[in-house]
Write a protein that binds this DNA or RNA. Structure first.
Lengths: 337, 337
DNA sequence: ATTGGCACTCAGGGTCCAGGAGTGCCAAGG
DNA sequence: CCTTGGCACTCCTGGACCCTGAGTGCCAAT
């Protein structure tokens, strides 16, 4: 159906359009790429490609531009992930060096990705569920309110305020703290829920209700907080792409944590770099954008996702290269710390 | 020099231009506001106002638009802060209700301000220096690395990783933790520096060097971290204003913590609502924007600043009202918790 | 000091036209 | 059957032109 040359033509069209942002015609194609056939031949090929839905012309007597389907075919079969240059590798290393706590790692990663790809970068905080409890701290705020601080082995610190049903004394807090740490230290967060369920037995009955309040907050933190945080950077890069009036829509979507979570969550494969093009993103304001994302995390299993977001007219090979490389480096850093 | 009517004309011009975004002419003025004089009279007044530098015409035979100087006079002498509507007050209360920990307070405040004013909201995290130490926690990560967690009475949690010069044992950590909490609990952060200076004496000499490392990180956290965080929200609102190509510049500036800190830091008076118009902002990308900001904090003294950023063509009275009201409410919330 | 009258200016929007890029189709050649 | 040169056709783009209307500045009269 599509012979080699037609595929080459499609690839050339995508590449040219991405770099020039202008519809590309048959003549320009034979000039810039060394297809040794005449423009007329290319025109025939393009007619077929258009019929199949891979390209369109914005108006009669203009060049062709790729459709979403065209980009899809391009990333699936016509392009190879572009490895980074040496300079870029060095940039990654220097950028991420010296970032120990989770916050700074995430922040630097966002900036790095945005700079590298000149797109909007999106980084999800590593999920809690895979890490283990390092320490739990209870700090009295008032006699009816505690600050619960949960520290994980990945260096993540979660804090929640606990509203108590009744007043609590220092000795009770100390006891509770001891029990919590004794039972939960070293446990994987995924297991915490079941352990907590058995805890009430180990607390003196007087303080049952207060303890219960603390336990339920722990559960919330561990289980319900699957709504992790997503950090965005490089939004300024959107102005280069010509969304014109859709820009408002996109910026709004980028401010909604929930939307971003759904966006990242959609893509299936955890480990590989996945690309979602245009309307493949079933998320309101972002149907005119493309997402290049992958999972990342310490070691082999991925804890969270990161990627870049840009116009469908995006340099996919480069973006995929950058995303893959950054994910690997960050994974390394996380594994070390 | 400028009689009452000329001032009224300037006020009318600012108000009309803000609401319509089009140069306003003499005829439109007498129609929309009930100045009972003829257009010709207004024209004379406008000629004077232009001569004085308060207004300009974009081209001959167009209406006038205010200059920065014109806006300045307007906010200083011609406008009153506009109180919020009942609905808006209720919105603030419901929006901020149920936010206990600092993170959620700040996040909600940003969203609230952005929604209320339809501008970009900017909120600085409450500064550490005024709060007191509630608790210090040391968590071993490896035998040469500690996680230091500092909890303040305002519910803020600071975390830093400490690289130790030599290995450290559990009992040393326990000792160090006890010393730190004994000496620093309840101290104001501003005083921590001097207290820490005396600490080395109270530590067994074997562990001097490790303890010193911990102390210096505490100092960093308390002193050097004056570079607080600033949170931005509502960037999508920028697309409504017609920065056209300056937009890129503005978005870039908004991503730079340092720039935002300088921006907020510039304005002098802590308690009052201050307005900085256009080039009064001596910050690179933001010379074409205006900032309406004020200090806020628990009780009477202000811990940090918040405000909104928008085009110089901004509804200042409304923005000032919203900023003032939100600052007060947030202050209340902070005082309670 | 205010006002009506009047001539003047100029941005914005419309039309018209020519140039050019790009196409589709066809007939001829490998 | 695929490829190619030729050719007519489409239609976007940019420039030139004109016209209209809003708004002004100035002046003489009140």
């Amino acid at each position: 159906m599509l012979d080699d040359r037609k595929l080459a033509v499609l690839r050339a069209i995508v590449e040219d359009f991405v770099s020039t942002n202008e519809p590309v015609g048959s003549k320009a194609l034979v000039d810039r790429h060394n297809l040794d056939v005449s423009p007329a031949t290319i025109r025939n090929d393009m007619a077929v490609l258009e019929e199949q839905g891979y390209i369109v012309q914005p108006h009669t007597s203009a060049g062709r531009i790729p459709t979403e389907q065209g980009y899809r075919l391009f990333v699936d079969r016509l392009s190879a992930v572009k490895p980074l240059s040496g300079a870029e590798r060095r940039a990654i290393e220097t950028f991420l060096a010296g970032a120990y706590d989770l916050d700074s790692i995430v922040m630097r990663t966002v900036r790095l990705l945005a700079q590298l790809t000149r797109q909007v970068a999106v980084v999800q905080y590593p999920s809690l569920t895979r890490s283990t409890v390092r320490h739990i701290e209870l700090v009295p705020l008032t006699d009816r309110r505690l600050l619960l601080v949960l520290i994980t082995d990945t260096g993540r610190v979660e804090q929640r305020v606990v509203e108590l049903p009744g007043p609590i004394g220092d000795e009770s807090i100390t006891q509770l703290r001891a029990v919590l740490n004794a039972c939960l230290d070293g446990r994987r967060l995924a297991d915490v829920a079941s352990v907590v369920a058995e805890l009430p037995d180990r607390v003196s009955s007087v303080e049952r209700s207060n303890a219960a309040a603390v336990f339920s907050v722990i559960l919330e933190t561990v289980v319900e907080r699957h709504e992790e945080r997503v950090v965005v950077g490089g939004a300024a890069n959107l102005t280069q792409a010509d969304f014109s009036r859709g820009l408002h829509e996109v910026l709004e979507a980028l401010e909604e944590q929930v939307v971003l979570m759904r966006l990242l969550g959609e893509s299936g494969d955890q480990a590989a770099v996945t690309v979602r093009i245009g309307s493949e993103n079933e998320v309101d304001g972002l149907r005119s954008t493309s997402l290049v994302a992958t999972g990342y995390g310490a070691g082999s299993q991925s804890l969270a996702r990161l990627g870049v977001l840009g116009p469908t007219r995006m340099d996919y090979p480069t973006a995929m290269g950058a995303v893959r490389a950054v994910a690997r480096y960050v994974g390394q850093i996380l594994a070390e710390s």
